[in-house]
Write a protein that binds this DNA or RNA. Sequence first.
RNA 1: UGCCUGAUUGUGUAACGGUAGCACGACUGUUUUUGGUGCAGUUUGUCUUGGUUCGAAUCCAGGUCAGGCAACCA
Length: 551
Amino acid sequence: MSEEKSLNFIEEIISQDLALGKYESILTRFPPEPNGYLHIGHAKSICLNFGLAKHFGGKTNLRFDDTNPAKEDIEYVDSIKEDVKWLGFEWAKECYASDYFDQLYAFAVILIEKGLAYVDDSTAEEIAQQKGTPTVPGTGNDYRNRSIQENLELFAAMKAGKFADGEKVLRAKIDLASPNMHMRDPLLYRIKRAHHHRTGDAWCIYPMYDFAHGQSDSIENITHSICTLEFIPHRALYDWCIEQLGIYASHQYEFARLNMTYTVMSKRKLLQLVEEGHVESWDDPRMPTISGMRRRGYTAGSIRDFCDRIGIAKRENIIDLSLLEFCVREHLNKIAQRRMVVTNPIKLIITNYDKGEEVLHSENNPEDPNGGTREVPFSNELWIEREDFMEEPTKKYFRLGPGLSVRLKSAYIVTCESFEKDAAGNITTVHVTYHPDSKSGQDTSGMHVKGTLHWVSAKHAVPVVLNEYDRLFKVEDLAAAEGDFKDYINADSLKKVIAYAEPALSNDGLDARFQFLRKGYFYQDTKSTKDHLVFNRTVTLKDTWAKEQKK
RNA sequence: UGCCUGAUUGUGUAACGGUAGCACGACUGUUUUUGGUGCAGUUUGUCUUGGUUCGAAUCCAGGUCAGGCAACCA
């Protein structure tokens, strides 16, 4: 009982708020802008926001922060909803900042009436210049002194489409000398004639983030508005708007965004990878997007577990990819169907096997006692991995070599008698004799071997394509790497290999999770068909032999 | 030469003035019909200098380092 998990700092705040009776229940929100696909960094935020609500008995809204029609699209809205659902979360309400455009406009009018906002005719460059720098205070302009009446009329004219794009903006009148740059008369509205995916052409002025986000939170009665660290300087403005408008006081809290080794986590960079063809699409299995990871074979549960393990804090961080891999292996180990697939084959001929063929049985998952077995055809001609035979075995090599014995998984123990090479000196065929009394499950041979190999009966084998993925980038910390991030793209992040699979694989469902014995975890690609099976490697198995060899 | 965050082992994350713990990684050993899994173990850490205190990762002061802030983006 005393080993309850310690609370993160946001959970501390909420549990205090609740204990103090500040709220009866909490309401959080996940507020993506529909301008791209969600990635693992968003998953952290989703798990946080929905997790908080679940933990404290509250609710979470899904809100699209769609205030910039130039970049947004319904395609993204749909993918975001799909991803959140797939991750296993249900939102209380589906909201859109654009649903509040009328209300937001009314809020702006209130600020103008209070003398706290004005229409500025300056160009973007002039405004930037007048803002000063972090160490030099900004300077005002004459527009700042316009009368309330004039501002009211001009703002109405802006809305009515009387001005060209960029001709005027609405600004808050706060403090041009503030040490916080965001308080130096921030822009509230800009004129932009762009077709909005929901409001169409009804508006030609759109609110800025700072004027839309906090008020949207307030309108929905969000109690805890959680965002990432870069919004810390915005908080003063967030609070200012709410206070001046006298509306429901939502509060903003910030945590550190997720960074991961060997990948990038910004929509801009991910978009670049897609547009420049470094990957196939947003859901390319090498992408850190939710859709990419789903296609690669990650389970929603393993992603939730990952988000749970990385924790929530305010310091910058970079999480090892190995933690994500650990989470998915741990889950997949429990649920994946075991199958045998040979990727780089050499022929194994059993010289004393005269039964022609027989059907053997192999367990689907040794971790699951109720997992059952499947039929695996066996014959005197098999495929085995090229790397499972060594002409001159080294000391700790437990596999096949002249005179050596191994077990064929779920079948018999075989002993190598001879082998053949082609003209180039490559091994082509290995001849073995099998031990009839060593049959799996009824072994009376008394023999003990160190190695067990996976195999596929040659005449029953089904050809499949395997996408073997590796990390997208060659360096751990892209943020610390100098120059263009694209210089560090791993050119070998995808290897397509043709492999021989046991026939059971062609009868398995599309959603099945597989472990190809001794190879890794695989998941059928979205483009896979019955006649052309394609599997994506989610993650390899841990390979202590490979490590041993490197020594 | 401003303001705002932050600094605990290789990477994350706890410890709320009282034994610096947990996870991943790495490394041993062991089990195993997957060199997988499981099990047992090991693993040079509180940025720095002062101060307060019986006692400081924690409180205070100074310093150092890292990140953020000057888009008609979110």
